[in-house]
Structure formats: structure tokens, C-alpha cells
């Protein structure tokens, strides 16, 4: 393609007018895209100018561009901070659990629901599993902490089952934190996250299953070769989006579950920004860390998509 184009090398004006004609031909489509672009310009791009404060010592009484320019001062401040890197480590650790095991669980739930033959039971399970999504972390965190306390139900259960001989303060040990955060998040969101896969499964042609059954395919085989294959684009899309979000964590969750005893494993990047920036009103510092994270996340998304193009020849996004 490219070499051909290079060989022909039409003059610029010619090319422009051709594009112009094409553009006019699809003016209806363009007219549907442009409201979106304008929306983004107004609501997303205008505020981006403000990222400039990451390079200044911002004071709110001073107009934006009149603040003292300090270059990369704030970036250097966090990049040379051990605690920043510890926060990155914790965020990545939590994300790793979330985008591997955590990512599969809603898919498995959707598959299991799809295998249910009793429609009513299916609907009940679906509804029930999506309920915890509506409990805010402020409340869910509080409940969990009391269940995890020394006299809480988890300890009672574990002792009566003979798993441990005395009560353990689960949330006081930093090594437990990732697991606690991961499990509680999974419980809260699995039903909710399964919805999108259930929606994807609905677009599968039932005739495919019937044909496979006639060919003698077992249930596992049908699950694997039909259901999973058909929802693969959705899985791939959500996976890429999840990977690009691996430097983010659920702020509310870590905020309510962390304490001074488990801080070494519970301080994620979001909490770091809160503790080091927002608490003391350091606008420029917080903006610098967020800006840095945005760049990395964006790069990750592009990298994933690039890899997908290289491997499968198709761009997911």
C-alpha cells in the first residue's frame, strides 16, 4: 500500500481535493461525529490547559499563566521519593491481581449463568450478584472491618472450622492487604462486571450451539469454542482498557481499608496523591503526579493496541 502510494505521489492539492470530495460524500457521517468532537473540545480539552500548573508553583489568587514557572521541580520531587515508588509497586500489585484472576471471574460468572437452564433462577442469581455494587465503600468498608476484627465473623468462622487456633487481626498485617482488597472488590463488583459479558453473549446465534451439539460437541467444548470465541472481541476490549488502568486503584476502597499498620502495602498511587498532595493543598504537586500517570496510562493503551495489531492484525480500539 504505502510503496504504491509513494510511487504515485499525487500532488498535494490534488490529494486534498480528492479527500475533500470524499469528505463531502460522507458529510452525513461527519456531521454525526463532529458534535462529539466539539463536545470533547469544550468539556475535555479546555480544562487540560490547566495541566500547566504542574510546572508552576500555583496560587489560586494568581491568574493561571502568571504563576512562577518552576519547570520539572514537582516531577523530580515525586520521582526521587521512595514512597512514590512504593505506591507504584502497591498499585501494580493490586492491578495484577485485578487484571488476571479478577478479570476472569466476571467472565466465568457470565458463562455459568449462561449455562443455567432455569430462566427464573438465572434472573435471581443475576440480580442478587449485582446488589453489592450499590453499597458505597464508606459503608462496605466499615462492615468488612468489623467482620475482620478479632471478634468478627471471619475469625469465629475460621476458629470453629479449625483453620486457626486463635483470633487474628487480619487487617493489621500488611501482607494480607492485597488479598483483602482483591477479594472484597471481587465480591462487590463481579455481578456488575458480568453484565457486559451477558450482553455480549446475547448476540451469539443459537444456531451455532445447535450445530455444535449435532456435531457431538460437549458442554465444555461448546463453552470454549462458541461462547468464548464469540465474545472474544468484548473480552479483548475490556482487557486492554483494564491494562491501561493498571496505575489506578479504587481510592474509596483503599482509603477505608487502610490504616497505619498496613500502610506499607495499602498506600496506592491514589492514596499517595491524597496523603502527599491534596491533604496539604499542594495543587501543583498533585497535578504533576496525575499528569505523569495519565501519560503512562495513555502509553500503555497505545502499546496494547499496537501489540494487538502486530499479533492479530486487528486494532481493538
Amino acid at each position: 500500500m504505502r510503496t504504491q502510494e509513494a510511487r504515485i505521489k499525487p500532488r498535494l492539492s490534488e490529494r486534498l481535493s480528492r479527500t475533500g470530495k470524499e469528505f463531502w460524500k460522507q458529510r452525513q457521517l461527519q456531521a454525526m461525529v463532529w458534535p462529539g468532537i466539539i463536545w470533547m473540545a469544550v468539556f475535555s480539552y479546555i480544562p487540560l490547559v490547566f495541566l500547566y500548573i504542574a510546572f508552576t508553583d500555583y496560587r489560586i489568587s494568581v491568574p493561571l499563566f502568571e504563576n512562577d514557572f518552576v519547570g520539572l521541580k514537582h516531577f523530580i520531587a515525586f520521582l526521587t521519593d521512595d514512597r512514590f515508588w512504593r505506591a507504584v509497586y502497591n498499585t501494580l500489585g493490586l492491578s495484577l491481581l485485578r487484571i488476571t484472576i479478577g478479570f476472569c471471574i466476571p467472565i466465568i460468572l457470565a458463562l455459568l449463568l449462561n449455562e443455567l437452564r432455569c430462566e427464573r433462577f438465572k434472573k435471581i442469581v443475576q440480580t442478587v450478584s449485582y446488589l453489592p455494587h450499590f453499597i458505597s465503600w464508606a459503608i462496605f468498608g466499615g462492615i468488612l472491618l468489623s467482620w475482620m476484627s478479632e471478634s468478627g465473623i471471619f475469625n469465629q468462622l475460621a476458629i470453629s472450622l479449625g483453620l486457626q487456633d486463635k483470633a487474628i487481626l487480619y487487617n493489621g498485617d500488611p501482607d494480607n492487604f492485597w488479598m483483602i482488597a482483591f477479594l472484597s472488590d471481587t465480591l462487590k463488583e463481579m455481578g456488575w462486571n458480568a453484565i457486559i459479558y451477558l450482553a455480549a453473549i446475547t448476540s451469539i446465534d443459537p444456531e451455532l450451539y445447535e450445530a455444535a451439539e449435532l456435531d457431538g460437541a460437549g458442554r465444555f467444548q461448546r463453552m470454549w469454542h462458541i461462547t468464548i470465541q464469540c465474545i472474544r472481541p468484548t473480552i479483548a476490549l475490556l482487557f486492554i482498557l483494564a491494562v491501561s488502568g493498571c496505575l489506578s486503584s479504587n481510592f474509596d476502597q483503599v482509603f477505608f481499608l487502610s490504616n497505619s499498620a498496613n500502610m506499607s502495602r495499602s498506600e496506592t498511587l491514589d492514596l499517595y496523591i491524597y496523603n502527599m498532595g491534596i491533604v496539604s493543598g499542594r495543587f501543583s504537586f498533585s497535578t504533576a503526579v496525575l499528569f505523569f500517570r495519565s501519560i503512562i496510562s495513555y502509553a500503555l493503551l497505545r502499546l496494547c493496541n499496537f501489540t494487538s495489531v502486530k499479533l492479530t492484525g486487528e486494532s481493538i480500539i
Binding site: W34, I37, I38, A41, V42, Y45, I46, P47, V49, F50, I60, S61, V62, P63, L64, F65, E66
Partner: peptide, 24 residues
């Protein structure tokens, strides 16, 4: 044309935003 309009719009807004720290 639309593109120019949009760019113009963005620029205008940028300027107004930049100018509007408050003036106590």
C-alpha cells in the same frame, strides 16, 4: 470550516480561561 470554527472556539475559551484566575 467546522474544524476552523472548532479550533477558534477552543482558542477563545482557552484565553478566557487563562485570564480568569480571580482578581481579589
Amino acid at each position: 470550516m467546522k474544524r476552523y470554527l472548532a479550533i477558534l472556539l477552543v482558542l477563545c475559551s482557552l484565553l478566557s480561561l487563562a485570564a480568569c484566575g480571580t482578581e481579589p
